[in-house]
Write a protein that binds this DNA or RNA. Sequence first.
DNA 1: CTACAACGACAGACCACAAAGAGTA
DNA 2: TATACTCTTTGTGGTCTGTCGTTGT
Length: 406
Amino acid sequence: MGYICEYCGEQRSIVYCRSDSACLCLSCDQNIHSANALSQRHSRTLVCERCNSQPAIFRCVEERVSLCQNCDWMAHASSSTCSTHKRQALSCYTGCPSAVELSTIWSFLLGDPSVHDSTCEQGMGSMSITDCQPGDSQHPQVKEKSQDISSALDEANDLHNLVKSAPFMGSSMPSLDNELHNVELLVGSTNLTWSKVRNSGTKGYDDFNMDEVDLSIENYEELFGVSIDNRDRLFKNEDIDDFFGTKDMSVAESSFQGVNAVEGSAVGKVNTVKSACSNAASTESMTSCKTEPPTLCFAMQQSSFSFSNLTGESNAGDYQDCGASSMLRMGEPSWHPPCPESSMPSTSRSDAVLRYKEKKKTRQFDKRVRYVSRKARAEVRRRVKGRFVKDGDAYDYDPLHQTRSY
DNA sequence: CTACAACGACAGACCACAAAGAGTA
DNA sequence: TATACTCTTTGTGGTCTGTCGTTGT
């Protein structure tokens, strides 16, 4: 299983599609996931380079390999030397990103190391969600997005306060500075939309469609700097870095995080930080401390990257489906380093905790209703034991009158 | 320590029908 | 090419049911 693309059976598998539970080469990934709107929602990530069958969650910078949770645990938990390896959370993506988008994202990060710190933030800051034409702000979906982002921002600010006020314990925890940087990056870049949205004239979110962008494999070629002829060779090469044409895979991964788009990605980033700081910040964590391996904590840092966000089709649920553990979805910490009671809290921190928990509680992760009219109809339909009944038939539940026909 | 029952949580199935989408004339 | 029509597919919510994990005996 794995290693070879499960669809074409020829190329080396690079991408793991969670929805299909399949390992795919990039060509097949593109073909399959450009088929329709549903397939475009599939979240994908890299394939674990150890077992070649599970979605990679981390990238070990030292070893330059992408690993799934199990392999990461096997590799890093057993050895004291390996346990110090720096690991990066891998991001998922959805939609059908064109080579243009990918190359744009990756090139500006690959081209200039300082981009991650300045250009990225600056460039994104110049793009505003409100830049979608004036009328768009009235558009329900855009409005909704704005609220989500606003909420995410508030949450991020809360988290920032939490992190600042919460001392970190435990050597295996990720760098607090990095996480803080992520929060700041998020706050600094939440005004972004894609340049295409901004440049699309009268187009708003709904009109923005990835399909408009060329998706030919030649572009992948350009993107990854390899010829089609060379692809086989490179796919067969054990060093995946060759394929990506990057000196350091972590740079490419950073690009995913650095260009976090609106909404879901922002939420993902918030959760990224949330998971990291929750150990010290959440009072829940103080009472529900479990003894799970540190890697699980790292697993919760998996953030989301979704191209399809730009189409306005995705929501928080998409983000949730982005390979994060169920614990992440629930926002519950899974592992907590020792944290003495004395290190807890000032009043401001308590306030921040309360606000954070309140917002977490009120945030909605429920499913998205695509057709309001159908929802409205379903809500008033008569039922028998929860099932719809034919009009005129006996029913035991009438939503409108709360009555029975028999 | 093992086996079993009881319990809760959760996911999926089920239903009718309007609306959306595809196909054809 | 545009329009009208038919047929198929999709999506909606409350309840039930089966499965799984946990807990207590």
